[in-house]
Design a protein around this nucleic acid. Structure first.
Lengths: 341, 341
DNA sequence: AAAATCATGAAGAAAGGGCATCAGGTTACT
DNA sequence: AGTAACCTGATGCCCTTTCTTCATGATTTT
């Protein structure tokens, strides 16, 4: 299958008996051209349905006006929202977006970076995969002076701008809420321990406990690999615990939903037996029965801020010094945590 | 913010004292080069961390190995799945993907096409916006011989390949299921009437009714604008109907979820008072209470097939004659339709 | 008043950006 | 001399931009 022919400046020039440079000038409305000539050219360009070849243009001015985005997975509602925010605001400022998903694999992540760089994107927005535990690929980007920002899943040490949620704060909000509901034996179900959000949310969880004079109990911190099987295993373990916990705070909503579903199948009542809470405010969480208490993270907003800051840096509207933008989360209390004692 | 320097063939050539063309040959492993020279060059390229400039390459061979994708919205789980399928299989075949969302606006859709074409994508995959009611932009693509395929939301007349679900078949499955459950007064909640899927699903709905000797009753076909307000309005209307329907089939899951949520708030029991069914099998539908009977449409599969066929055409592995791929749906019966009479 | 100079406006020529490739050109060997 | 084997130069892809050229009419000079 072949692509049809594209009109080039050369052709317009030939048709009008002028030089290519004149066409170029006319199309960028240069002042050093006779208005009449300009008019004629613009008209002809329109008539011939001329579309500038962005490729050639980019090669010439060595800017593609394209951004690369890497997310762990597109099908996650949260990341889809981020992408949406990035898209909209990039477009608004005349930039295109190439999106890749790492599928939570570090190798994919590295490969994605490579292709995006080869495609000459002007900058990158990256959210790290779950697997990412070394960061050479990021440092290479850094040393090659390719601008990028990290969002949500970040690596703290590297000196580039980052956009994150106040994860510790959000976890604190939830835990505090559970404590206010009268719960005192609160389990935290974490993801893999080296994940940025695992750590941060644990921090907030512990801080709230400390404020209530409860000291950390390692038994009450469960780790899931975040697969459905892993989540169910944790749900089972919790049932065996002694003393029996009265509340469970899951690092992300899907874990809470899996736990809830499993427990429901076993006839265990939420919130009567266990108060339950998640994090992220997925659409699903609003409609499960009982509706899930959670923390909302506006993904669209995050994408918007990340891309806006990046473009500000690119366009020289902001300093190149890395900054850290931290977005606040809001507690969304729902029935799953309404434990009446 | 400036981008760091990129190593070019010229520089390798200079360093090694050979010509640029030799570099080019070495890097594509041409046979007419001394193995030793080749080895040296490849080594040096690696050492200097040479990355070919895809832009220049594309300009030269006038193929970008990039596909453009336009979907109504990324945050919809179904379209996100399609994108995921497209991504994975495009990458597998050495293609990159640029994604745009039309936000259900025809103007955005047209603008998206324009930028993607200007970016010299090799081909497009498009799912039309809800607003799209004229098709000049598609015919223009067609006449400019830019390859593209339509998926899910298609325009039937245009002679390009299309990938769709058997929407009529799926609607037939649901309606048939509701009939088997003993329902006889089944409401169909449709989206805007000129939408492809509105029409197709209505077809299947009517076909099933006919088989049961029930004749079409326009009163039983409700139209929603698919906003939450619109959906709730329909939910209210249904409560006023006389005779009272015993089942409701919604064109897409979100409508069913809105109706369910509204009814629950009014103390109306599903499936006891009304059997309820949707279409698409969103993740949400599995976890609402009661779980929603629906029809599953594998989005990932759709994306995969669409892109595979397109690339087959592009690479000359498939004929350029347009074909229509129709994917089967499967009924997912859940509690919301278990009406015991 | 005629000639020389200059300023200005308008458009062309050409280079350059990185790569691929056709058509030649050097060697070294038979 | 003929022929491989190996390498190079030039050109083109499409666009931007700097440098030049060429008129034209205004200003100055003689």
């Amino acid at each position: 299958m072949k692509k049809g022919h594209q009109v080039t400046m050369k052709e317009i020039a030939k048709k009008l008996g002028v030089s290519v440079s004149t066409i170029s000038r006319a199309l960028k409305d240069s002042p050093e051209l006779h208005p009449e000539t300009k008019r004629k050219i613009v008209e002809m360009a329109k008539e011939m349905n001329y579309q500038p070849n962005l490729l050639a243009q980019s090669l010439r001015i060595s800017r593609t006006k394209t951004l690369g985005v890497i997310v762990p997975e597109i099908t996650s509602h949260f990341f889809a929202s981020c992408i949406s925010g990035i898209q909209d605001h990039a477009n608004k400022r005349g930039y295109n977006v190439m999106i890749c998903q790492s599928n939570e694999s570090i190798d994919q992540e590295i490969a994605n970076i490579k292709t995006l760089v080869a495609s000459q994107v002007d900058a990158l927005l990256i959210s790290l995969s779950r697997e990412t535990n070394h960061y050479e690929h990021l440092y290479e980007l850094y040393s090659r002076e390719i601008p990028f920002v990290l969002f949500d899943r970040v690596h703290e040490e590297i000196p580039v701008s980052k956009v994150t949620f106040n994860d510790a704060g959000g976890a604190y909000q939830v835990t505090h809420h559970l404590l206010e509901m009268g719960c005192r034996n609160i389990v935290y179900v974490s993801g893999p321990e080296d994940l940025y959000i695992s750590k941060k949310r644990k921090e907030g969880y512990l801080k709230a406990l400390t404020e209530y004079g409860i000291k950390e109990n390692p038994e009450f911190i469960k780790i899931s690999d975040l697969t459905e099987d892993g989540n169910i295993r944790v749900a089972q373990e919790i049932l065996q615990m002694n003393p029996k916990p009265d509340a469970v705070f899951c690092m992300i909503d899907p874990v809470a939903v899996d736990v809830l579903t499993y427990w429901k199948s076993k006839g265990i009542k939420v919130p009567e037996e266990f108060a339950l809470a998640g994090f992220t405010n997925n659409p699903t969480s609003a409609v499960v029965e009982p509706p899930l208490t959670t923390v909302s993270q506006p993904g669209y907003e995050m994408g918007k801020l990340a891309v806006s800051h990046l473009l500000d840096q690119l366009d020289g509207l902001a300093s190149d010094d890395p900054i850290s933008i931290v977005l606040d989360t809001t507690l969304v209390p729902r029935k799953s945590s309404q434990k009446t004692i």
